[in-house]
Design a protein around this nucleic acid. Structure first.
Lengths: 205, 205
DNA sequence: GTTAGCATGTAAGGAGTTACATGATTTT
DNA sequence: AAAATCATGTAACTCCTTACATGCTAAC
């Protein structure tokens, strides 16, 4: 066990491999297509992560289908990974945690990306958690702004302005999402997203 | 010499102390007022940084003015730091580097915050560097989007959409800034004071 | 007289990052 | 056959985070 690598990468890898088996290089491209706007990972991060997930038994090398052209000898050039049962369990476990890790800057994007696999109540908690996190941040910055008796130069000010605006934007976005979530939650006739909403969590508040 | 701590914090601390001497606690508040929309630092990051900058001679403990109420004995409860000559030099050095460190996600905010201390040509290079960085990112994500023959669920899609929009927004912001920089650069008579007014077309949304 | 905020720190560790190294496969 | 891209990895490092620890000072 030892290193519990509970970072963004692990979740992202498990989540992507849950959709379909892949090899590392492809994984990285998908990774940067999905999360690319927020963060990027290099191979130096990915391969060690794969190595460890493999050691933990969360993923396994997929045996190549016999139809594929064997390179030459027994050595295959691509290593296709798939999620094991343990890996699926771990993924579900990670996606069920509605804590700071899920709504801080680092984690939010990845968690959101796999909301399709996440229970509706957890989704809501994460969205609300992030929103209040951002609102705290707004307050903090605004407090610093109003208390500005120091002469702040125009760049510092412009940065704060732009920062505030971005955060406000995200809050509005979250508001829409939360409203949308509540709506689909309240109407049992229409399923929330694309596929399955397994285990209903009783009633809403 | 040894550890050269050339991270975000160092620059931020040097930059803030250049404006006015402060003690650690206050420094952290200013830090999170200025950069709070992008990132936050705890005391566990700040104090070690101060310690090292002190050891390097970049900052020094300010001697308290005799008028202040001495606590009891020689022990003072607040430690006010000021920038030394070496520190100012180091700050200028850091602010003169128009490289990836200045336009990647981590560094850009801090560098921008202290543009007031930065040479005009460096400012422009950093702004343009960041813009092309973001444009690369846009291309990467868009490439992943168009090549989406896989069924992506609506959350992944919504995340990409929101991410793209945010990045596009920042690009537009950078465009305005760059235009503004070029303008003030070209007109030596008028200082770059006036912050952008509206009146421009386009930004409906 | 006790909470809340001010103020300063340390020890241990994590989650990637950077730079390097190598070979296969496809395109030009 | 050269160049680009695909594909996989390692070693060393770093900047910061988390959790902990302490005491002073103002407010209620």
């Amino acid at each position: 066990m030892a290193s519990q690598r509970s970072g963004v990468l692990e979740l992202a890898v498990l989540g992507l491999l849950h959709e379909t088996p892949m090899h590392g290089y492809e994984l990285r491209k998908r990774l940067n297509a999905v999360l690319g706007a927020f963060r990027a990972f290099g191979y130096g991060s990915l391969y060690p992560c794969l190595k460890e997930l493999l050691a933990q038994g969360m993923i396994a090398e997929e045996e190549a289908p016999p139809a594929t052209p064997m390179p030459l000898s027994g050595r295959r050039s691509k290593i296709v990974y798939r999620l094991t049962a343990d890996g699926k369990e771990r993924l579900q476990d990670l996606l069920s945690q509605a804590g700071p890790a899920a709504w801080e800057d680092d984690g939010f994007g990845v968690h959101f990306a796999f909301f399709g696999q996440t229970r509706a109540d957890i989704r809501l908690r994460i969205l609300e958690g992030r929103r209040s996190r951002l609102e705290e941040r707004l307050e903090g910055v605004r407090a610093g702004l109003t208390r500005t008796r120091e002469r702040v130069d125009r760049y510092t000010l412009e940065l704060q302005r732009h920062g505030l605006e971005s955060v406000e934007r995200e809050v509005r976005w979250l508001n829409e999402l939360i409203a949308s979530e509540r709506q689909s939650d309240a109407s049992p006739g229409s399923p929330p997203a694309g596929h399955r909403d397994d285990g209903r969590a009783g009633s809403a508040g």
